[in-house]
Write a protein that binds this DNA or RNA. Structure first.
Lengths: 221, 221
DNA sequence: GTCTATAGACCGATAGAC
DNA sequence: GTCTATCGGTCTATAGAC
């Protein structure tokens, strides 16, 4: 008995309502249909079973191909993971920095904080399966790819810290510990990928509003 | 090239300050010294590389034994993981339900909420390496063992929900959504195992107090 | 209780036909 | 671009000596 026990086949994963999210529309421009299909299949497999417990056969079966076909579209299993993780990190960072998101509710620090936390939270909920891979499968990356992702994460964290710091500086917020409070806000949005399911009592947007409200309570004067 | 790239040897892991925590004193009574040593080594390996990327050789090397020696002390690699995860879940649940913890600051709902959140948070910080395994390696368990752990988690969640609900019922807290708010509080304590390190700017107790304060802000009238 | 050696099974990636 | 077949390597777990 030399291997894994609690695995799920690609077919089971495709039918599992707990693995339903909006990630199939996430991938970069310029990728072919087969590549996108493989990424979507890989996301489900990695999220359900983990990177190391997922085989190239599992991923390929999810789109009805043989294991060898994967290597026509991606040079390695690790690069499938990297493509998923990089795309996810880039997409969410672009989204929260989008001017239309940033200023949707006004230009005061509280408006901005509310907007970016609601957006960041809703994004993780909408894409909770892909986001789970982005948050919890980074150990499958090579050292070089891991460093690239870390850079994106640092930029994201700095953006949120700055948003909090501005409200503290101009007196809109209380004199909180910016680093600690920002980390707590991001923890809420990140941890939801562990338990969130689409089709439950909270829509991504409702949860975003709720967590934005909690974030404002954390900095209330 | 049929295997992993970014792994760390047991010796590297033993010297890594990011993997220093208080888990070596965590194990059940009745276990021998070698068993405890193997569990401590396994915790470091699982936390750093993940369950599936960790080999029985890695675990055994951490205590200077050959790979075969592990099977004298544990019947399988999965049961090493189960012992770690079950012990962690039992220990933290026992701790937050301890009467001396519960009533340390008084018997009002706010006192109790502050006490249990501070304790739950500090426990996860003190044992952040083992806690990472408890939170993020559940997929390595067999279906039966996974269900046992889920039962412990449900009891823990119910305990915290009840603590919040009492304060809402007697008017100590605002009329919040108990389920959502409780989940947010636990998310803070759980997500810290992703980034927390001992020896940094926050001690486990300081972080516990800080998160207890945030929890009270979430339910403030 | 520890070791060396290895059985038995599986996986990532490649070769080569079509 | 997809397939079948398979290589080379690695893993969990066991056998058997000490």
């Amino acid at each position: 008995m030399a291997r894994r026990q609690a695995r799920f086949t690609a077919q089971e994963l495709a039918d599992d309502p707990r693995l339903r999210d909006h990630s199939s529309g996430l991938w970069r421009e310029g990728l072919g249909d087969v590549q996108r299909g493989l990424l979507t299949s890989a996301v489900r497999c990695f999220a359900a079973n983990g990177f190391h417990a997922t085989t190239t056969r599992d991923i390929a079966e999810g789109v009805g191909l043989s294991p060898a076909a994967l290597y026509v579209h991606f040079p390695s299993k690790e690069l499938v993971l990297f493509e998923i993780v990089r795309t996810g990190h880039e997409r969410v960072l672009t989204r929260v920095q989008d001017p239309s998101v940033l200023s949707a509710r006004g230009d005061g620090p509280a408006d901005r904080l509310r907007a970016v936390i609601a957006e960041y939270t809703a994004w993780h909920a909408r894409h909770h399966v892909a986001a789970r891979v982005c948050q919890f499968e980074l150990r499958g990356l090579t050292a070089g790819h891991y460093d690239e992702i870390l850079e994106l994460r640092h930029r994201t964290n700095a953006f949120f810290r700055d948003t909090v710091a501005r409200g503290v500086a101009d007196g809109s917020f209380a004199q909180v510990d910016v680093k600690r409070v920002t980390r707590a806000m991001l923890s809420l949005s990140i941890d939801l990928v562990r338990w969130y399911r689409l089709g439950g009592s909270d829509s991504p947007e409702e949860l975003g509003e709720f967590y934005a409200g909690l974030a404002l309570k954390m900095v209330a004067r």
